[in-house]
Amino acid sequence: MQTLKAEKKSISSNNDQELVNLLEIEDLSVHLGGNQILKNINMVVKKGHIHAVIGPNGAGKTTLMRSIMGGMPHQGIIRFLFRSNSKIGYVPQLLEFDHSVPITVCDFVSIMLQDKPIFLSGSGSIRKKIVETLAITESEHLIDRLIGGLSGGEFRRVLLAQALEPLPEILLLDEPASNIDEYGAMLFEQMLNRLREEHGLTILMVGHDIKMILRMADRVTSINRRVMFDGTPDELQGPGKVDELFNGSMAISTENMEG
């Protein structure tokens, strides 16, 4: 963990002021079924940053993510400062399907990379492309495994691989630390740090895993329907600070945070 921390610090040593904005959110509000889910959210994601959005369950994190992806009616402005919407890579938290249906990693990646229905295309034609895609996250050996049978860490790497093909301008990670063991999480973090160095990726991650976020993020926005905190992870380090933000709904002791 110590090495990871050191690595992070070296990457993020650039002065924040010099970085350009990649994503700007102004006065974002979302109402759903008569409830206000998000209220006047303002935040900016800088190019090259790992930006974390944290908050307790039900704080509106997923709604924020959906709004950014354009899948949610909202008020306010969400502005991407690059050309096309297609350059967003998205790593979902989970895939929703009946897990007794046999869907292989190959099937899953193919349906995203080709229009031709999977049952009308030969297995060989797109396989090379899929192997190349999986290789980005060193997961090409998983190609014939069933999605439902992957470990948390393997699953996350497959999801990350698809998000990087084609290479996006910004990577959105939804709850990257869920359903994953300590070792898997560490591998995943190393991979993210490496990808970010190699490709200059900007990463926006949403989650409630404070440990991972304090280790990795350059900037943290905490929300609970509205913005509760916006600053660097160091500013969050004070005793009781995290508890306060999470309204006691998610008590995390400082020992836990040290990992």
Binding site: Y90, P92, F108
Partner: peptide, 10 residues
């Protein structure tokens, strides 16, 4: 079906 937001992203 797998994930509507992922579909949107693609």
């Amino acid at each position: 079906g797998f994930n509507p937001i992922l579909a949107k992203a693609r």
